[in-house]
């Protein structure tokens, strides 16, 4: 019995203290410099479709204090919730509005940003952080962004994303200081898009 369990449960961080710190620092750098892609080296093999990057951010940032919402593909595989519950203790919630963190394996099917906690005018920090596992992540093309953390403008392209992605983000940003923050992860890489990053014309003059 013990052996069966051991085979079923994927490992968490081998060194929770330093790996957790490294993943957090990558997330901190990503949100401080929106659009800049940084490496995220992970030695995890979580149950699919939970990607190693999604798992690493969940292990580093969530615990019993942070309700986590899983999108449909992650919900359909019971081993994903089992992995997260065992290693983080985070409650898995059914409604996006209750979540502090949302793990999204199918970003094209991501619910409207407004379904997630936006924070309140007095407490804008009481808002959700969405972690999306995308397939492609590039800073060479795509829509341009300006704002805090960006010198001039920065481009960030990710895919697949919802068809109305640009208008969704514009609406999310227009609600500042309310809104959600995004962490976009691809294989071995990470980029951040905080609510402060506003859409910009690519050739626009620096305006921070």
């Amino acid at each position: 019995m013990a052996h069966t369990l051991a085979r079923q449960l994927a490992h968490g961080f081998a060194d929770p203290v330093h790996e957790g710190q490294a993943v957090f620092r990558a997330a901190m750098e990503a949100l401080s410099r929106p659009g800049r892609i940084r490496p995220l080296a992970i030695a995890l093999t979580p149950p699919a479709p939970l990607t190693p990057e999604l798992a690493a951010l969940a292990l580093a940032l969530t615990d019993a204090d942070t309700p986590v919402w899983l999108d449909a593909p992650l919900r359909e595989e019971p081993a994903v919730a089992g992995f997260l519950r065992f290693h983080t203790g985070a409650p898995i919630v059914a409604s996006p509005g209750q979540a502090a963190f949302a793990l999204i394996a199918d970003p094209a099917g991501c619910p409207a940003f407004t379904e997630f906690a936006q924070g309140t005018p007095a407490y804008p920090d009481a808002s959700a952080t969405l972690i999306l596992a995308v397939e492609t992540l590039s800073d060479a093309d795509g829509p341009a962004f300006a704002g805090p953390g960006i010198r001039g403008t920065m481009r960030l392209d990710a895919g697949p994303l919802p068809a109305d992605w640009a208008s969704r983000w514009a609406a999310n940003q227009a609600g500042f200081p309310l809104g959600v923050d995004l962490l976009l992860v691809a294989a071995g890489r990470l980029a951040g898009l905080p609510r402060s990053a506003r859409p910009a014309a690519p050739e626009a003059t620096p305006c921070t």
């Binding site: 957790g20 997330a27 949100l31 940032l61 969530t62 615990d63 502090a100 920090d125 200081p177 905080p194």
Partner: peptide, 20 residues
Amino acid sequence: EGTKRMIRRAILKAIAIPGY
């Protein structure tokens, strides 16, 4: 580690809402 995670989450929100 639990305290660090709580502080780290606060830092990430602080960065997303500059000056708040």
